[in-house]
Computed example of a mutant assay.
Amino acid sequence: MYSELREQIAEICRMMWQKGWAAANDGNISVNVGEGKFLATQTGICKAFFKAENVGLIDGDMNVLDAAPGFKPSSEIKMHLRCYRERADIGAVIHAHPVAATSFACAGLPLDDECMISTVLEVGKAPLVPYATPSTDEVPEMIAPYLQSHDVLLLENHGALALGRDLITAFCRMDTLEHQAQVSINARLLGGVKNISDVNVKKLISMRASYGLSSPPGA
């Protein structure tokens, strides 16, 4: 079932490793396939070697419905499921540890610079979600208040989360988030970030629809 989508998830997992978003077994992906079912990545597999057989079908209680023998979903899929419950428009979730964005999370800083046109258009600000113990129900509870108004989140001392209407959108948002983090760090080294004016930020946000981009419900 869903063989093409499983292959796409595995390919993106390998890309995550190549781009430095996921060391060793870090990171996880899920896709909402409808009727309360989700494709989810297996725990304990290095993303460099990820295969389609490492993607399983689960339900909203993390029961395995269809998977290769020995499959166990990542325990952090709990936070993905919370995203789907909070946002009916979300079709895919990616969690990763991209170095620059995670550096902001480890420094206790939101990524709220509005200095790049593409970032304002495509993802907006990334708030800092307070620390929560990974793999527990603390994480879903902590991210819940931010989901209605943001498509990308920083998880304090942990990593980043990107939401999208589909897998490619979620991947592109994580990519944009990490690029913004790299630019923001460099701008600080060069003397400071020069943000786009509030007036022009509002203009950019109003242009999202014309670029085929959706806005978070709270934007």
Rank of each mutant, 00 (worst) to 15 (best):
S118A: 13
S118Y: 12
T119C: 14
T119S: 14
T119K: 02
V120T: 09
V120P: 06
L121P: 08
L121Y: 05
E122R: 02
G124T: 07
K125P: 09
A126M: 07
A126Q: 04
A126E: 12
P127A: 06
P127H: 01
P127S: 06
P127T: 03
L128T: 14
L128K: 05
L128P: 12
L128C: 10
V129C: 07
V129S: 12
P130T: 14
A132C: 15
A132W: 14
A132P: 07
T133G: 01
T133D: 00
P134D: 02
P134R: 11
S135L: 11
S135E: 04
D137V: 14
D137C: 09
D137T: 11
D137K: 03
D137H: 09
V139A: 11
P140M: 07
E141I: 10
E141Y: 14
E141M: 12
E141G: 10
M142T: 07
M142F: 12
M142N: 05
I143K: 02
I143M: 07
A144T: 12
A144P: 05
P145N: 02
Y146D: 08
L147S: 00
L147C: 02
Q148N: 10
Q148H: 08
S149P: 04
H150Q: 05
H150G: 06
D151H: 00
V152S: 04
L153M: 06
L153N: 03
L154N: 05
L154V: 06
L154A: 02
L155Q: 10
H158I: 15
H158Y: 11
H158P: 11
G159H: 02
A160K: 01
L161P: 07
L161D: 08
L161S: 08
A162Q: 04
A162E: 01
L163E: 04
G164F: 03
G164W: 00
G164T: 13
